[in-house]
Design a protein around this nucleic acid. Structure first.
Lengths: 123, 123
DNA sequence: CGCGAAATAAACCAACAGGTTAATTAACCC
DNA sequence: GGGTTAATTAACCTGTTGGTTTATTTCGCG
Protein backbone atom coordinates (compact mmCIF):
# COMPACT_ATOMS: atom_id res chain seq x y z
CA UNK A 1 0.00 0.00 0.00
CA UNK A 2 1.62 3.17 -1.20
CA UNK A 3 1.35 6.73 -0.07
CA UNK A 4 -1.58 8.67 -1.49
CA UNK A 5 0.45 10.90 -3.78
CA UNK A 6 2.16 7.95 -5.39
CA UNK A 7 -1.16 6.26 -5.78
CA UNK A 8 -2.64 9.31 -7.45
CA UNK A 9 0.22 9.71 -9.89
CA UNK A 10 0.25 6.00 -10.62
CA UNK A 11 -3.45 6.11 -11.38
CA UNK A 12 -2.89 8.97 -13.81
CA UNK A 13 -0.04 7.17 -15.55
CA UNK A 14 -2.33 5.33 -17.91
CA UNK A 15 -4.08 6.81 -20.93
CA UNK A 16 -7.19 4.68 -20.51
CA UNK A 17 -7.66 5.88 -16.97
CA UNK A 18 -7.06 9.48 -17.93
CA UNK A 19 -9.63 9.12 -20.68
CA UNK A 20 -12.11 7.73 -18.20
CA UNK A 21 -11.58 10.69 -15.91
CA UNK A 22 -11.97 13.04 -18.86
CA UNK A 23 -15.24 11.38 -19.75
CA UNK A 24 -16.41 11.72 -16.18
CA UNK A 25 -16.08 15.47 -16.38
CA UNK A 26 -19.21 15.39 -18.55
CA UNK A 27 -21.09 13.80 -15.71
CA UNK A 28 -21.77 10.50 -13.99
CA UNK A 29 -21.72 7.31 -15.99
CA UNK A 30 -22.01 3.65 -15.20
CA UNK A 31 -19.41 1.05 -15.99
CA UNK A 32 -20.61 -0.08 -19.39
CA UNK A 33 -21.06 3.49 -20.55
CA UNK A 34 -17.52 4.25 -19.49
CA UNK A 35 -16.26 1.08 -21.09
CA UNK A 36 -17.92 1.59 -24.47
CA UNK A 37 -15.11 3.62 -26.10
CA UNK A 38 -12.55 1.00 -25.13
CA UNK A 39 -14.30 -2.23 -25.91
CA UNK A 40 -12.54 -2.41 -29.25
CA UNK A 41 -9.18 -2.37 -27.51
CA UNK A 42 -9.91 -4.30 -24.35
CA UNK A 43 -12.47 -6.35 -22.52
CA UNK A 44 -14.96 -5.22 -19.92
CA UNK A 45 -13.11 -6.77 -16.97
CA UNK A 46 -10.07 -4.79 -17.99
CA UNK A 47 -12.08 -1.61 -17.63
CA UNK A 48 -13.42 -2.78 -14.31
CA UNK A 49 -9.85 -3.11 -13.14
CA UNK A 50 -8.99 0.38 -14.29
CA UNK A 51 -11.99 1.67 -12.40
CA UNK A 52 -10.83 -0.15 -9.32
CA UNK A 53 -7.46 1.56 -9.57
CA UNK A 54 -9.13 4.93 -9.94
CA UNK A 55 -11.44 4.21 -7.07
CA UNK A 56 -8.78 3.09 -4.65
CA UNK A 57 -6.82 6.19 -5.56
CA UNK A 58 -9.91 8.11 -4.55
CA UNK A 59 -10.31 9.69 -7.97
CA UNK A 60 -13.76 8.29 -8.53
CA UNK A 61 -16.58 7.13 -6.34
CA UNK A 62 -18.76 4.24 -7.36
CA UNK A 63 -22.37 4.17 -6.28
CA UNK A 64 -24.91 1.44 -6.74
CA UNK A 65 -28.24 1.79 -8.37
CA UNK A 66 -29.90 -1.55 -9.07
CA UNK A 67 -27.45 -3.41 -11.29
CA UNK A 68 -25.64 -0.28 -12.33
CA UNK A 69 -22.63 1.33 -10.71
CA UNK A 70 -22.79 5.03 -11.42
CA UNK A 71 -19.32 6.49 -11.21
CA UNK A 72 -18.55 10.06 -10.47
CA UNK A 73 -15.40 12.05 -10.49
CA UNK A 74 -13.72 13.06 -7.27
CA UNK A 75 -11.12 15.72 -7.81
CA UNK A 76 -9.85 15.85 -4.25
CA UNK A 77 -6.67 13.77 -4.74
CA UNK A 78 -5.72 15.95 -7.68
CA UNK A 79 -5.48 18.82 -5.30
CA UNK A 80 -2.52 17.30 -3.53
CA UNK A 81 -0.92 16.27 -6.79
CA UNK A 82 -1.28 19.76 -8.20
CA UNK A 83 -0.05 21.14 -4.91
CA UNK A 84 3.08 19.07 -5.10
CA UNK A 85 3.69 20.17 -8.68
CA UNK A 86 3.19 23.78 -7.81
CA UNK A 87 6.63 23.77 -6.27
CA UNK A 88 8.07 23.33 -9.75
CA UNK A 89 6.02 25.89 -11.59
CA UNK A 90 8.95 28.27 -11.92
CA UNK A 91 10.93 25.46 -13.51
CA UNK A 92 8.57 24.97 -16.39
CA UNK A 93 7.05 28.36 -16.77
CA UNK A 94 10.04 29.62 -18.72
CA UNK A 95 13.78 29.79 -18.84
CA UNK A 96 14.29 26.84 -16.57
CA UNK A 97 17.71 26.79 -18.12
CA UNK A 98 19.71 29.61 -19.62
CA UNK A 99 21.27 27.35 -22.24
CA UNK A 100 17.84 26.20 -23.28
CA UNK A 101 16.74 29.76 -23.75
CA UNK A 102 19.90 30.57 -25.64
CA UNK A 103 19.36 27.65 -27.99
CA UNK A 104 15.81 28.71 -28.62
CA UNK A 105 16.82 32.18 -29.69
CA UNK A 106 19.52 30.75 -31.90
CA UNK A 107 17.05 28.43 -33.57
CA UNK A 108 14.67 31.26 -34.20
CA UNK A 109 17.44 33.33 -35.67
CA UNK A 110 18.32 30.42 -37.93
CA UNK A 111 14.79 30.16 -39.16
CA UNK A 112 14.28 33.86 -39.50
CA UNK A 113 17.71 34.51 -40.94
CA UNK A 114 16.74 34.81 -44.55
CA UNK A 115 15.05 38.09 -43.73
CA UNK A 116 15.56 38.29 -40.02
CA UNK A 117 14.78 41.53 -38.33
CA UNK A 118 13.68 41.18 -34.73
CA UNK A 119 11.19 38.38 -34.90
CA UNK A 120 9.05 37.55 -31.84
CA UNK A 121 11.14 35.68 -29.33
CA UNK A 122 8.57 33.13 -28.28
CA UNK A 123 6.36 31.94 -31.10
CA UNK B 1 7.20 2.71 -24.97
CA UNK B 2 4.49 4.88 -23.56
CA UNK B 3 3.17 8.31 -24.37
CA UNK B 4 4.98 11.20 -22.72
CA UNK B 5 2.24 12.11 -20.29
CA UNK B 6 2.01 8.57 -18.98
CA UNK B 7 5.75 8.47 -18.66
CA UNK B 8 5.79 11.69 -16.70
CA UNK B 9 3.11 10.58 -14.28
CA UNK B 10 4.71 7.19 -13.90
CA UNK B 11 8.01 8.81 -13.05
CA UNK B 12 6.30 10.90 -10.39
CA UNK B 13 4.56 7.90 -8.90
CA UNK B 14 7.46 7.02 -6.66
CA UNK B 15 8.46 8.84 -3.47
CA UNK B 16 12.17 8.32 -4.01
CA UNK B 17 12.01 9.91 -7.41
CA UNK B 18 9.90 12.79 -6.15
CA UNK B 19 12.42 13.35 -3.37
CA UNK B 20 15.22 13.43 -5.91
CA UNK B 21 13.40 16.05 -7.94
CA UNK B 22 12.77 18.06 -4.79
CA UNK B 23 16.44 17.91 -3.97
CA UNK B 24 17.29 19.06 -7.47
CA UNK B 25 15.36 22.26 -6.95
CA UNK B 26 18.24 23.34 -4.72
CA UNK B 27 20.57 23.00 -7.66
CA UNK B 28 22.61 20.51 -9.63
CA UNK B 29 23.99 17.44 -7.94
CA UNK B 30 25.85 14.36 -9.06
CA UNK B 31 24.65 10.82 -8.55
CA UNK B 32 26.29 10.02 -5.24
CA UNK B 33 25.16 13.30 -3.75
CA UNK B 34 21.64 12.55 -4.82
CA UNK B 35 21.90 9.02 -3.55
CA UNK B 36 23.22 9.87 -0.10
CA UNK B 37 19.85 10.30 1.64
CA UNK B 38 18.66 6.94 0.37
CA UNK B 39 21.67 4.74 0.91
CA UNK B 40 20.22 3.48 4.17
CA UNK B 41 17.18 2.21 2.34
CA UNK B 42 18.62 1.09 -0.96
CA UNK B 43 21.80 0.56 -2.92
CA UNK B 44 23.49 2.92 -5.30
CA UNK B 45 22.51 1.03 -8.45
CA UNK B 46 18.91 1.34 -7.34
CA UNK B 47 19.28 5.11 -7.32
CA UNK B 48 20.96 4.99 -10.71
CA UNK B 49 17.88 3.22 -12.00
CA UNK B 50 15.59 5.83 -10.56
CA UNK B 51 17.66 8.47 -12.26
CA UNK B 52 17.36 6.63 -15.51
CA UNK B 53 13.58 6.65 -15.18
CA UNK B 54 13.61 10.37 -14.48
CA UNK B 55 15.94 11.00 -17.36
CA UNK B 56 13.99 9.05 -19.93
CA UNK B 57 10.89 10.88 -18.77
CA UNK B 58 12.80 14.05 -19.52
CA UNK B 59 12.54 15.32 -15.96
CA UNK B 60 16.26 15.53 -15.46
CA UNK B 61 19.27 15.93 -17.68
CA UNK B 62 22.49 14.19 -16.90
CA UNK B 63 25.77 15.80 -17.90
CA UNK B 64 29.24 14.38 -17.64
CA UNK B 65 32.13 15.96 -15.92
CA UNK B 66 35.07 13.61 -15.48
CA UNK B 67 33.71 10.69 -13.51
CA UNK B 68 30.74 12.68 -12.21
CA UNK B 69 27.32 12.95 -13.74
CA UNK B 70 25.88 16.27 -12.67
CA UNK B 71 22.09 16.09 -12.83
CA UNK B 72 19.83 19.03 -13.25
CA UNK B 73 16.13 19.44 -13.13
CA UNK B 74 14.11 19.90 -16.29
CA UNK B 75 10.61 21.08 -15.55
CA UNK B 76 9.35 20.96 -19.13
CA UNK B 77 7.42 17.69 -18.90
CA UNK B 78 5.68 18.94 -15.79
CA UNK B 79 4.16 21.63 -17.91
CA UNK B 80 2.11 19.13 -19.87
CA UNK B 81 1.21 17.23 -16.73
CA UNK B 82 0.03 20.39 -15.02
CA UNK B 83 -1.75 21.39 -18.19
CA UNK B 84 -3.64 18.15 -18.25
CA UNK B 85 -4.61 18.53 -14.64
CA UNK B 86 -5.76 22.07 -15.15
CA UNK B 87 -8.88 20.72 -16.76
CA UNK B 88 -9.92 19.38 -13.36
CA UNK B 89 -9.14 22.40 -11.27
CA UNK B 90 -12.80 23.22 -10.79
CA UNK B 91 -13.33 19.69 -9.54
CA UNK B 92 -10.92 20.01 -6.68
CA UNK B 93 -11.03 23.68 -5.95
CA UNK B 94 -14.37 23.24 -4.25
CA UNK B 95 -17.91 22.16 -4.77
CA UNK B 96 -17.11 19.22 -6.97
CA UNK B 97 -20.33 17.85 -5.57
CA UNK B 98 -23.51 19.56 -4.51
CA UNK B 99 -23.87 17.39 -1.44
CA UNK B 100 -20.37 18.31 -0.47
CA UNK B 101 -21.23 21.97 -0.78
CA UNK B 102 -24.39 21.47 1.15
CA UNK B 103 -22.57 19.76 3.96
CA UNK B 104 -19.96 22.46 4.03
CA UNK B 105 -22.54 25.22 4.40
CA UNK B 106 -24.25 23.23 7.11
CA UNK B 107 -20.98 22.84 8.95
CA UNK B 108 -20.28 26.53 8.68
CA UNK B 109 -23.72 27.37 9.98
CA UNK B 110 -23.22 24.93 12.82
CA UNK B 111 -19.99 26.55 13.77
CA UNK B 112 -21.26 30.06 13.31
CA UNK B 113 -24.51 29.87 15.18
CA UNK B 114 -23.95 27.15 17.79
CA UNK B 115 -27.70 26.74 18.13
CA UNK B 116 -28.81 24.98 14.97
CA UNK B 117 -32.07 25.64 13.25
CA UNK B 118 -32.94 23.20 10.44
CA UNK B 119 -30.40 20.44 10.86
CA UNK B 120 -29.57 18.14 7.97
CA UNK B 121 -32.35 15.79 6.97
CA UNK B 122 -30.17 12.80 6.07
CA UNK B 123 -28.10 11.46 8.91
C1' DC C 1 51.35 2.40 -13.71
C1' DG C 2 48.15 1.19 -10.21
C1' DC C 3 44.81 2.56 -6.80
C1' DG C 4 40.50 4.57 -5.37
C1' DA C 5 36.29 6.79 -6.33
C1' DA C 6 32.03 7.59 -9.36
C1' DA C 7 28.92 5.51 -11.88
C1' DT C 8 26.98 2.05 -14.77
C1' DA C 9 26.11 -2.67 -16.59
C1' DA C 10 24.77 -7.41 -16.10
C1' DA C 11 22.31 -11.02 -14.29
C1' DC C 12 19.01 -12.19 -11.42
C1' DC C 13 14.62 -12.15 -8.56
C1' DA C 14 9.98 -11.12 -6.37
C1' DA C 15 6.07 -8.47 -6.81
C1' DC C 16 2.94 -5.96 -9.42
C1' DA C 17 0.35 -4.16 -13.67
C1' DG C 18 -2.49 -4.91 -17.28
C1' DG C 19 -4.56 -7.88 -19.98
C1' DT C 20 -7.21 -12.35 -21.16
C1' DT C 21 -11.26 -15.98 -20.79
C1' DA C 22 -14.59 -18.26 -18.17
C1' DA C 23 -17.52 -18.34 -14.23
C1' DT C 24 -20.32 -15.95 -10.84
C1' DT C 25 -23.20 -12.55 -8.56
C1' DA C 26 -26.99 -9.36 -8.49
C1' DA C 27 -30.76 -7.13 -10.12
C1' DC C 28 -34.61 -6.43 -13.26
C1' DC C 29 -38.65 -8.09 -15.84
C1' DC C 30 -42.07 -11.20 -17.84
C1' DG D 1 -38.71 -19.44 -11.87
C1' DG D 2 -36.03 -18.31 -15.96
C1' DG D 3 -33.86 -15.17 -19.06
C1' DT D 4 -31.22 -10.91 -19.72
C1' DT D 5 -28.25 -7.33 -18.55
C1' DA D 6 -24.61 -5.12 -15.53
C1' DA D 7 -20.71 -5.89 -13.31
C1' DT D 8 -17.39 -8.38 -10.70
C1' DT D 9 -14.45 -12.40 -9.42
C1' DA D 10 -11.22 -16.02 -10.30
C1' DA D 11 -7.50 -18.05 -12.43
C1' DC D 12 -4.14 -17.35 -15.38
C1' DC D 13 -0.36 -15.24 -18.41
C1' DT D 14 3.20 -11.84 -19.73
C1' DG D 15 5.95 -7.82 -19.37
C1' DT D 16 7.61 -4.32 -16.38
C1' DT D 17 9.29 -2.29 -11.83
C1' DG D 18 12.19 -1.93 -8.17
C1' DG D 19 15.35 -3.97 -5.86
C1' DT D 20 19.60 -6.98 -5.11
C1' DT D 21 24.77 -8.45 -5.72
C1' DT D 22 28.75 -8.72 -8.47
C1' DA D 23 31.55 -7.09 -12.16
C1' DT D 24 33.10 -3.41 -15.23
C1' DT D 25 34.11 1.12 -17.05
C1' DT D 26 36.08 5.65 -16.55
C1' DC D 27 38.44 9.02 -14.65
C1' DG D 28 41.85 11.63 -11.33
C1' DC D 29 45.99 11.34 -8.90
C1' DG D 30 50.37 10.13 -6.39
Amino acid sequence: MRDPLSQTFAALADPTRRAILARLVEGEANVSELAKPFLTEMSLPAVTKHLKVLESAGLIQKGREAQWRPCKLNGAPLKDAAGWMEQYRSHWEESFDRLEVYLRTVTEKDKAQKKGRRRGKKS
